[in-house]
Design a protein around this nucleic acid. Structure first.
Lengths: 189, 189
DNA sequence: TTAAACACGTGAATC
DNA sequence: TGATTCACGTGTTTA
């Protein structure tokens, strides 16, 4: 028998001195305990709503893990390739940019010097282009010139071609004519 | 008054038919309710241990976030610098490696061709070194040679020096002598 | 012993 | 109405 209707009418006003009518000594303590318990339960219920963040946390963690994996792979791939093909590619890109920065060679620069009638000193600076050197060598060869000391050097997208030539059968075209001819070849590429 | 000592001695044997002595009709229901509640509480306690994973989850998320940020920064930095100084550095490293791969030029390679008595065709390949070209030009100048068409090209740590020279006062040293002299200069650097 | 925790029966409130 | 939930006082157990 424990309801408020048991006795007169004013029993459980908090912590008042009206507990003389009860036999139990732990009445007050039990009231306090129940109150605490109840409040704790309410507290628990209030934070239980926040338990939904666990679901969010799971998906969030998944996203983060994916990001980490993706980024790690990217870095690994970058580091792995950057000291091989990638570096060469970067160099080529850099060369292109450098060439553009310093200005594109508008047209091959050709120098032909006729020396002692049968000897040639050729110096050509041209923009690096696929097949250009092949055509150049081919053209010079067609003119019947034997190339003795040829050096081809490329740097920053430009090509320096220097050679020391000689007419195969003594005869040799005029230096001016040859220059025109070589320029023609360069333009045609 | 609700303990087992209130009445005779055999009250709450589960769900027996001995509830005729009690006035309340909800006695059985209340017993069942309390039992259920208690078991639920135990159940809750058992899974509450797993609540510690929330703490772990928090630290785990922090770690992941740090990783993501770090990796992103690395990538950004790599992408940002790789098209400027970094690429040049990569190129230089690549050049160094290339030079080593193809073997270091053991000693300057000097070609001197005497043409028509007063003209020279000089071709020197040397390892890039500070001050080397200055010494070279200085030496050639001291020999009284006027350099008409000179090209200096560097690539992969090597230097190609080609020039077409002429004796200033008609006189010109012997090609073999000159070669020795130039090699001496190259060695002294 | 004391004090806190627990289980119980019960009356009232809620739906 | 009837079934369920809640709060209470109390006796017992536990530490």
């Amino acid at each position: 028998m424990g309801s408020r209707m048991d006795e007169e009418n004013h029993i459980d006003e908090d912590d008042n001195d009206n507990d003389a009518k009860f036999k139990s000594k732990n009445l007050k303590a039990e009231r306090k305990r129940r109150k605490k318990l109840s409040s704790r339960q309410l507290e628990l219920r209030s934070i239980m709503n926040k338990a939904t963040i666990i679901t969010d946390a799971i998906t969030y963690i998944e996203q983060l893990k994916n990001s980490v994996e993706e980024l790690s792979n990217q870095l690994l791939q970058m580091e792995a390739t950057t000291f091989d093909e990638e570096k060469i590619k970067l160099k080529e890109i850099h060369d292109e940019q450098e060439t553009k920065k310093w200005g594109i060679i508008p047209e091959a620069e050709v120098h032909v010097n006729n020396i002692c009638g049968t000897k040639l000193w050729i110096r050509i600076v041209l923009q690096k282009k696929r097949g250009a050197l092949t055509k150049l060598m081919e053209g010079i060869s067609l003119l019947g010139i034997d190339l003795n000391d040829t050096s081809i050097t490329t740097s920053s997208g430009a090509v320096l071609f220097t050679t020391f030539g000689e007419g195969i059968r003594g005869g040799l075209p005029d230096a001016g004519q040859m220059k025109k001819y070589l320029l023609e070849i360069m333009r045609s590429i």
